[in-house]
Amino acid sequence: MNSTLYMNQDTGVQQKDAIVIENMSKRFDRFLLDKISFRVPSGSIMGFVGENGAGKTTTIKAILNLLYPDEGSIRIWGHPSDSLSKDLRAQIGVVFEGSNLHDNLTTDNINKIMGNIYPNWDQNEFYNYLNRFKLPKKKKIKDFSRGMKMKLSISIALSHAAKLLVLDEATSGLDPMVREEILDIFMDFIQDEGHTILFSTHIISDIEKIADYVTFIHEGKIVFCENKDELIYRHGIIRCRRDDIAKIDKSFIIGIRENSFGTELMIKDVDAFKRRYKEFVPERATIEEIMLFISRGRKD
């Protein structure tokens, strides 16, 4: 993955990635996050995808220092994630799936609380977002819908001059209209080159809409971490008869699916494949299909 350089504010050294995870492992009773490594380039949106229980939330918790990896390292803007300064932590906005705010609070209360927690809290920005999202100021959070709670969490994350947004399933369970509205906000946020988003979700269509890069985690292991456009460009689906599989070099095949209509093969290195096999015409693959072929398709 190619990354651009950025200036580390503390050291003055140019760095290329907002987040770098190297060989990070975490073992639980029934789950292993297995030596995962990936980078989130500064100024980009990284879609972090995988099925439920694949290890997305565990990885995000490790990045946020909410749990301690058994081995490996995590660096944010070049600094170890477990020893970030207060100023750097204040530049990270986090949105979890639940709102994590007390039910009996109002948005005015939250403004007061966050104003005393974040040194760079921008009250005007917060109320601007509340207005934009049409969130009431006096209503208690317990009376908010799920979509409203999520919008509130996003408003908080965007009201303290955050440069890195970490979103864990922020759009899950929301209706398409609200999701679209939230994705637009993320697109606005990323217009600033210094801003970065790590966006974990299992809704692949959201990733296809906004992500620059895609990291796919499956059963605790990183399967790929690639530029989204290159990923789509390099993969293709061919539909053929079962007998045709034997004619194709196995190194091209990522996964095979069979149904009553025939056989589907997910092919990688589409350009090389096309040059070698003129008789097959690969069709464009979606990220969802690539993931499904990798995780559920067989190899031969």
Partner: peptide, 15 residues
């Protein structure tokens, strides 16, 4: 109230 809201996990992402 903190436990019901799962506040700690959120607070620890703040400065």
């Amino acid at each position: 109230l903190d436990e019901m809201a799962k506040w700690d996990i959120y607070a620890l992402t703040m400065p």
